[in-house]
Structures are given as C-alpha cells and as structure tokens.
C-alpha cells in the first residue's frame, strides 16, 4: 500500500482541501478531505459516498457550507470507473478496506479523529454505506442512506445479497455470516433514510427482477419504505428500539442535485 496526500483547490469558501490516496491490494482510492476553518474536534467527520455517476465533487460542494458551519471535516472519496466498476459491492471487491485505509490515513495525518464517522451515501453510495455499516458498525456515528437502488435486508429468509441467509452460490468472502455477527450493533445505529418522493421510475440503473421486485418493491421509493419496515422489525425482534427515520423529499426524482436543493444535505448535517 502506498499512501499520499496533496493539497487541491478548495471546494467552497473557507474550507481547505487535501487529496489523500491509498492503495490496498491492486486498487487505489482517492478521497478529498475538506477541513473547515474552525474544526469542531468532537464532531465526527462526514464520509460522503457518491453514486454510480461518481460526482464526488458535486457532493462535496453540496455539503461544504453545512460542514463549514458545523466545523465538520468532510471526506469525499472517488471510486474510479476503471478500478472500481462495482464499488458499491463488498465481496470480490473490497471498498470497505480502502475506506478504512482512508480513515486511518486521515487520522494518522492528524486531520481528524476518524474513530467514528457520520456516513452518508447516495444511490450506489448508499448501497455501499449500509453494507459498510453492517460490517463495521462501530465506525459509524450515524448512518444516512439516500435513494439506494436496493438493500441488503436484515432478514434471514432472503439469500445474500438481498438478505443475510447464505448465498445461493459459494462466496469467496462470507459477507452474510460476517454481517450476521454484527447485526445487533448495526440495528442499534442511528439510521436516517432519504428518498425522493417522485423516485418511482424504473430507470436503466435500477436493479430489476422478479425476486427483488417482489420482496423490496418495484422502485426506489417502495424499496426505501420496505427497508425501513424490515429494519424496524429486525430491531424490535431483538428488543431494540430503532433510532430510525424515513424522509421523503418532495418533488424529487432520482437526482442528488434535486435532493440537495430540497434540503437533503442540510438534513444530514443537522440530524
């Protein structure tokens, strides 16, 4: 693994930005770390994961003013298309290990305490965010997942990757068993789910199929609602009162920019 850090132009206002790169195995991951003018040392950094369009800089700009106001360090990784065609999955690819390495490097460089982060993901980034949190719940202060195309349910009737029952095909990495051991800690997390109220289209990027449509719903809005029900049921079955909310953003389609305009980034930072 080689790690680097270099200054890059700031995204917005008084924040300063440094780009960190880590190499884990054969893949490199870069992340821009945006430091507010007056960092609040007790505030966990916000780790924001882009979707499949990989517009990390757009996400950084949308969060910048809120993070600056809060004194919150903002970390925006960018998974390259070439090296990370399926960055949202944990298994054959290990985006989790690269994210951990980024967090370790940010801490080692003295930028922020990354023991815990507020973890946000949009669309494909939301898929990665909740899967990461299922494996490392202790690293997550609060989990914010917006407009995920589909979810890994805390449900042992559904085979992995849709649920936590054993996968139908042998896995190189037994993610469902690992997540199973962390499930209680995961269900105790503060979870905020966001979805555009108009995100009801079956676009090309949406995963479709008989099984997923029947279980999770035919579009992202239905799937977000289903996930919240499943999360609540799994928590309550274990005697946990879930710290969970679902926010449906009015007039929003499947667009991060629209959701941000409708207050998504402010909601995340003020949660």
């Amino acid at each position: 693994m080689f790690d680097t850090a270099m200054d890059v132009p700031p995204v917005n206002g008084p924040m300063t930005t440094t780009r960190f790169s880590v190499r884990v195995g054969e893949r490199t991951l870069s992340a821009d770390v945006h430091i507010p003018s007056m960092p609040a040392p007790d505030t966990p950094p916000l780790l924001a994961l882009h979707g499949i369009s990989r517009r990390a800089s757009v996400m950084a700009k949308a969060f910048a003013s809120h993070c600056e106001a809060k004194g919150q360090v903002l970390i925006t990784p960018r998974f390259s298309r070439k090296q990370w065609p399926h960055f949202q999955r944990i298994g054959s690819y290990r985006p989790d290990r690269s994210l951990l390495a980024i967090l370790a490097l940010v801490e080692q460089m003295g930028v922020a305490n990354t023991n815990k982060v507020d973890l946000f993901g949009y669309s494909g980034g939301a898929q990665l965010a909740h899967r990461f949190a299922m494996l490392y719940p202790q690293r997550v202060a609060s989990l914010h997942i917006a407009a995920a195309g589909w979810y890994c349910l805390p449900d042992f009737t559904q085979p992995f990757p849709m649920g936590l029952a054993p996968a139908e095909k042998p896995l190189k990495m037994n993610v469902p068993a690992l997540a199973h051991n962390q499930l209680r800690n995961y269900l105790e997390l503060k979870l905020r789910v966001y979805i555009g109220a108009e995100d009801q289209h079956r676009d090309d990027a949406l995963r479709k199929g008989h099984a997923i449509d029947n279980v999770q719903g035919r579009h992202r809005l239905a799937r977000a609602r289903h996930y919240c029900r499943a999360f609540r049921a799994a928590a309550e079955a274990r005697g946990i009162t879930p710290n969970l909310s679902l926010t449906e953003l009015p007039n929003c389609l499947h667009s991060f920019a629209d959701c941000a305009k409708a207050g998504l980034t402010k909601l995340v930072c003020e949660a």
Binding site: D96, R97, L135, V175, L178, N185
Partner: peptide, 19 residues
C-alpha cells in the same frame, strides 16, 4: 488479517457490550 473477519471476532467477544 482482514478487518471484516477480525471485527466479527471482536463482536463475538462482546466488544460493543463492553464499551
């Protein structure tokens, strides 16, 4: 050596309960 596997052993050892 894998943090995901090691972390699951920590969970089984009750690390969150202890914290």
């Amino acid at each position: 050596l894998d943090p995901a596997y090691a972390n699951t052993l920590a969970a089984r050892a009750g690390i969150e309960r202890a914290r």
